[in-house]
Design a protein around this nucleic acid. Structure first.
Length: 444
RNA sequence: GCCGCGGUAGUAUAGCCUGGCCUAGUAUGCGGGCCUGUCAAGCCCGUGACCCGGGUUCAAAUCCCGGCCGCGGCGCCA
């Protein structure tokens, strides 16, 4: 091998007209082999694209021809050669002068990356390292990475500070969702079902505006296409708010920024094209109180939700449809959820204590964000706990945060995988997670 | 947690309802062969499967029961 040559991503190579005629090095997986006798066409693939490499008997060295004949699908190789214009799809191809096989499959492929998405999801997940090589699947995770990056960028630009809170916690916390117990040096502890208490802690502690990107764990045995037992939560919390509208403004700000960039950025175009989606950036995200939502559902769709009850998933889908029709928006806030369906730390409406300053954001009819203003007054918090039938003793560590000066604050939690799923129109959230965990699956 | 649907070569499927013609078909992969410009390469040969256990029957991939596994809906949630 020529030690001086530097490996370039295929995508970068294809963008470089000036490299035609010069020596290049391409490394990647053997995506396809078309052996036409004395010419072998190798389609090499890396994260960024495909390129055809040509091994022609008589032109390439004898040993290269021999090595090339040992290649299998998904062998890992580096080839050196001259980048030349050719009849290949990409317009250029590599005339191979030297080849190095770095790895060869030791058994037949259980899944071919090219066609993996035609297999059932369970099989794909069992062999996720092969499935992930399917460019369509790769694109899901390129987008997921990008969304998380956008989240960080946006909130940093708004004066938020990134925090890192414990995932091993003492109390089962907040909303009554089931938690996973862990044995912590002989004591019982739990995997965090949300960073809720600790992001409030950080605001009260004086960081004022914080965000976190981290895993959360739910021991709920859901069998649906939109639940995982482990997922990534994008959390924000901010102090000195006038009302929960401030929180919604920041959530709305992020979605508009993110969707706007997604629509504009030419680098992301291949992802949108692959999944055939158009991005709709709303001028304004509608905000309807849940009591108005009851009316809308009944009057426009004949769907009856008992007054004061939570929305079911059908209701959420219908509201998504409503937002699209009447507001030209894929997003819609539902506000003022009933106190009975919200966790104890939610602030109740001053004038109507059976309703709260809590909201959800629906994205294409699926709940992707939950947020609201939190109760920051110690005594009220105590009353609210009792009202929920909870024992203040078990929340002492949390209540103590509020004893020494806590500003009015609020925040929100967003499901990263759900955002990606809804953006690309995936039909199962497991597709939006590299290695999903559900009630039946803990491997690979 | 409750309720439905399903399990055939490595992968994806046909066959199952209406049991026998199934020595289980097809595509792709895999192994071998031919081919000097392929690009879903092509052609020839080969390889390989009825989830497990029990039952009904002259006869079970096919019907029945149990188990295991998978998928989905609901509740709930991000």
């Amino acid at each position: 091998m020529h030690g001086m040559l530097k490996r370039l991503f295929i995508g970068d190579l294809l963008a470089r007209e000036d490299l035609v005629g010069s020596q290049v090095r391409v490394c990647g997986w053997v995506h396809n082999i078309r052996d036409v006798g004395r010419i072998k066409f190798l389609v090499l693939r890396d994260r960024t694209g495909f390129i055809q490499a040509v091994v022609k008997a008589g032109e390439a060295p004898e040993w290269v021809v021999e090595e090339a004949s040992k290649l299998k699908l998904e062998s890992v190789v580096c080839v050196d050669g001259v980048l030349a214009r050719g009849k290949a799809k990409e317009g250029v191809e590599v005339k191979v002068k030297s080849i190095r096989i770095l790895s060869t499959p030791v058994e037949p492929l259980p899944l071919e990356p090219d066609t993996s998405t035609g297999s059932i999801l369970a099989t794909r997940l069992n062999y996720r390292w092969l499935d992930l090589r399917n460019p369509r699947v790769t694109k899901v995770f390129l987008l997921e990475s990008w969304v998380a990056w956008q989240f960080r960028e946006y909130y940093r630009s708004q004066g938020f500070v990134e925090i890192f809170t414990p995932k091993i916690v003492a109390a089962g916390t907040e909303s009554g969702a089931e938690v996973f117990p862990v044995i912590y040096f002989g004591r019982e502890a739990f995997l965090a079902q949300s960073p809720q208490f600790y992001k409030q802690f950080a605001v009260i502690g004086g960081l004022e505006r914080v965000f976190e990107v981290g895993p959360v764990f739910r021991a709920e045995p859901h069998h649906t296409t939109r639940h995982l037992t482990e997922y990534h939560s994008l959390d924000i919390e901010l102090g000195f708010i006038e009302g929960y509208e401030d929180v919604m403004d920041y959530v709305e700000g992020f979605f508009k920024e993110m969707l706007g960039n997604l629509q504009r950025d030419p680098q992301l175009k291949p992802i949108l094209e692959e999944f055939n989606v158009d991005i709709l950036v709303p001028k304004e995200v509608p905000r309807v109180s849940i009591r108005d939502a009851y009316k809308i559902l009944e009057e426009e769709y004949g769907k009856k939700i008992p007054y004061g009850e939570d929305l079911d998933s059908e209701a959420e889908r219908l509201l998504g449809d409503y937002a699209r029709k009447h507001y030209d928006s894929d997003l819609i806030f539902v506000t003022e959820y009933p106190w009975k369906v919200r966790p104890f730390y939610t602030m109740r409406k001053e004038d109507e204590p059976e309703w709260t300053y809590g909201f959800d954001l629906l994205y294409k009819g699926l709940e992707v964000v939950t947020g609201g203003q939190r109760e920051h007054r110690y005594e009220v918090l105590l009353d609210n706990l009792k009202d929920k039938g909870l024992n203040p003793e078990s929340f002492k560590f949390y209540l103590d945060f509020f004893k020494h000066g806590a500003p009015p604050h609020g925040g929100a939690g967003m499901g990263l995988e759900r955002i990606v799923m809804q953006t690309l129109g995936l039909d199962n959230i497991r597709e939006a997670r590299l290695l999903p965990r559900d009630p039946e699956r803990v491997t690979p």
